[in-house]
Amino acid sequence: MESLLANFLAKYNYWAYIGLVMIGMYAMIAKRNLVKKIIGMNIVQTAVILFYVSIAAKKGKTIPIIAHGHEDTGHHAVQALDYISPLPHVLMLTAIVVSVATLGVALALAIKVYRQYGTLEEDEIAMRIEEQ
C-alpha cells in the first residue's frame, strides 16, 4: 500500500496534466460563453505542454546550457546525464507559439461573432439565429 501511494505521488505532474486536460475539455463542452470556451481550449494546450516538459526532467540535473562551452570543449567530455533533455523544450517552444497563434485567431473570430450577434453567450446567439 505504501509503495503504491509513493508510486502514485511520484508521478504527480502526470496526474496534474491529466487533471488539466479534463478541466479544459469540461470548459469547452459545458460552458456556454465563447470566451470561456476559448480559455478551456488554452488550458488543454497548456496541459500538453506540461506533459512534454515533464518528460524532459531529470532529477537534480541542470538546464541544457553547457557552461564555458567555448573555452575548453576538448578537455572534459560533456556527460548527457548531467543535463536535462533539450528536445521536449524545443518542441514545446513550438507548441507555445502555436497556442498563441490559435488564441489570436480564436479571439478575432469571437470579435466577429460579437459584431454580428451582439453577444458571446451561445444560448442568446441561438435565439438570434432563430429570429432571423
Binding site: M41, V105, L109, V113
Partner: peptide, 9 residues
C-alpha cells in the same frame, strides 16, 4: 464566424 469558431475548438 460562429461555425469557424466551433471548428477551431
Amino acid at each position: 464566424p460562429l461555425s469557424s469558431l466551433n471548428y477551431i475548438f
